[in-house]
Amino acid sequence: MNAVSAEPASAAASDLPAVHVVAAALVDADGRVLLAQRPDGKHLAGYWEFPGGKVEPGETPLQALRREIHEEIGVRVASAEPLIRIPWRYAAKRIVLDVYRVRAFDGVPHSCEGQPLKWVPASALDPSEMPEADHPVIHALVLPRHYLITPQPDADEDAFLARLDAALARGVRLVQLRAKASDDAALRRLAPACLSRVRAAGGQLLINSRSDLVDEFDLDGVHVTAAQLAALDARPVGAKRWFAASCHGPADLRRAQALGADFVVLGSVAQTASHPQQIPLGWSEFAALCDEAAVPVYALGGLVRDDLDAALAAGAQGIAGISAFW
């Protein structure tokens, strides 16, 4: 893959046509991902990256992926699914990186160009070893397709926890505890109770707004509102915690990326009963915004589980919501 170090984009770089690049997240039966090391003498020598390369004139991205993967690691891609598209700007160039998840391939990967290869569990990929443009790919590989946002808990906490148990039993693995109206005492009871259930199911729990509770209860991260995002001047949690944000348009997306958000939710995509006067984005505008986002994006607002395919086709990581999963 033609990787370069991340630097602030110059005006000249912004005016240049983007170089179209493809890469494969080749996944084996054990959930490990194949990485290739950039050779000595090349830019970013020693960094590990997802194998791939440039799309040549007249090629589709999939054709380029199949050609590059066969030339670089000697296997034939049997099937590939889009994982994430990343626009990336550098001091002297722009790229658009289309990354595919490849689970089915023929042959045994081996170095055809002398570069070292290694298999790494997706959960153990180390951003410090990889080019910055690949960091969103790491997140996309481990984030699930569904993101449950809980409704505001009422006084019946046992019933709330029972509903959470039911959602986890249906396969939800990423949960946002949204309890902004709860008092501090109730939230301090509820957060550890939710965490124990989510962790027992193999999932991860973020809390809405309250970054101050993340380390205290060893939560997996924080999800901030668009208003909080606008007021932040730094990432609110450490690098090993999820930092997610709600976005409603391009300014929010740019702000989230500037602050190092790991993923975002974007909406409302469709009309919602809670905000009947709000004009929804629709899938076309959602897709256009996804194309400009260098982070995984969940579609939000008026969606049901059956909207997942439409969301993926528009470039989303998946769908987020309350009623769709609660």
Rank of each mutant, 00 (worst) to 15 (best):
E7N: 09
A9Q: 07
A18M: 07
H20A: 14
V21L: 12
V22P: 04
A25N: 02
R32M: 02
A36G: 07
R38G: 05
D40E: 15
P51C: 06
P61H: 14
L62W: 12
R66Y: 00
E72A: 10
G74Q: 08
A78T: 14
A78M: 13
S79A: 09
A80T: 01
E81W: 04
E81L: 00
Y90Q: 14
D98Q: 08
R103V: 02
D106W: 10
H110D: 03
K118Q: 15
M130Y: 01
E132T: 15
A140M: 05
Y147K: 03
I149C: 02
T150L: 10
Q152A: 14
A155D: 12
A159P: 08
A162W: 06
R163W: 07
A169G: 02
V172H: 01
V172P: 06
R178G: 13
K180E: 15
D184F: 12
A185T: 14
A186S: 12
L187V: 08
A193V: 12
R199T: 15
G203M: 14
L205V: 00
N208L: 04
N208Q: 03
D212L: 03
D220L: 10
D233E: 03
S246D: 01
R254F: 02
A258R: 15
G260P: 00
S268N: 05
A273M: 03
A273D: 13
H275Y: 04
S284W: 05
E285A: 11
E285C: 14
A287R: 03
D291Q: 13
L303Q: 01
R305A: 14
D309C: 02
D309W: 01
A313G: 08
F325G: 04
